[in-house]
């Protein structure tokens, strides 16, 4: 009985050791970061931004955001999304699906700007109008999509270099 126990336990031990150490005898291989490429990070950020746009729209429809706040957030987020999608396009030009997304976004963006300038007739909202127009000239961080001043070299939010974005 004792010998049987010892036999079973030794058998289990050998099996477990062989199984757990098996990968160590294979040829050495580094961990490949399929989950950590700049592209997947960008896509994740873009998805988050698109979600944020939806949420802002929903909040506005629910009356939680004033028109002014909604427009500012919406414009900012759409700019972010556009910057991110452009950057994804650069990294993966064959991402054909993104084209249409970008088109839609830009088209929607125009609508928002149009409606903003349409509503901006009264004095109170006149202030926001040039800001919306100005923002088109500002640049956005290709890594995180944050707004940056045109002469900045690095992103104030994430520290990524801003100039890399310009096509070579």
């Amino acid at each position: 009985m004792l010998w049987l126990t010892i036999g079973v336990v030794v058998g289990i031990t050998v099996l477990v050791i062989a199984y757990v150490t098996a990968p160590l005898w294979r040829p050495r291989k580094p961990l490949v970061e399929t989950d950590d490429t700049p592209l997947t990070a960008l896509i994740e950020r873009k998805d988050a931004t698109l979600r944020a746009i939806k949420e802002v729209e929903f909040d506005y429809q629910m009356g939680k955001l004033s028109e002014e706040d909604f427009e500012r957030d919406n414009v900012r987020l759409r700019h972010q999304a556009i910057a991110l999608i452009r950057h994804i396009e650069e990294l993966a030009p064959d991402a054909g699906e993104l084209d249409t997304q970008l088109e839609t976004l830009i088209a929607q963006q125009r609508e928002v700007s149009d409606s903003a300038s349409g509503n901006g007739a009264d004095v109170a909202e006149a202030e926001t109008e040039p800001e919306v127009l100005l923002e088109a000239e500002k640049i956005f961080c290709p890594t995180c999509g944050a707004l940056a001043a045109p002469d900045d070299n690095f992103c104030a939010t994430c520290g990524a270099p801003l100039r890399k974005a310009t096509p070579a």
Partner: peptide, 11 residues
């Protein structure tokens, strides 16, 4: 889902 699809060949 569609936006993720092109990521694979790029990798």
């Amino acid at each position: 889902a569609t936006a993720r699809a092109p990521a694979a060949p790029a990798i």
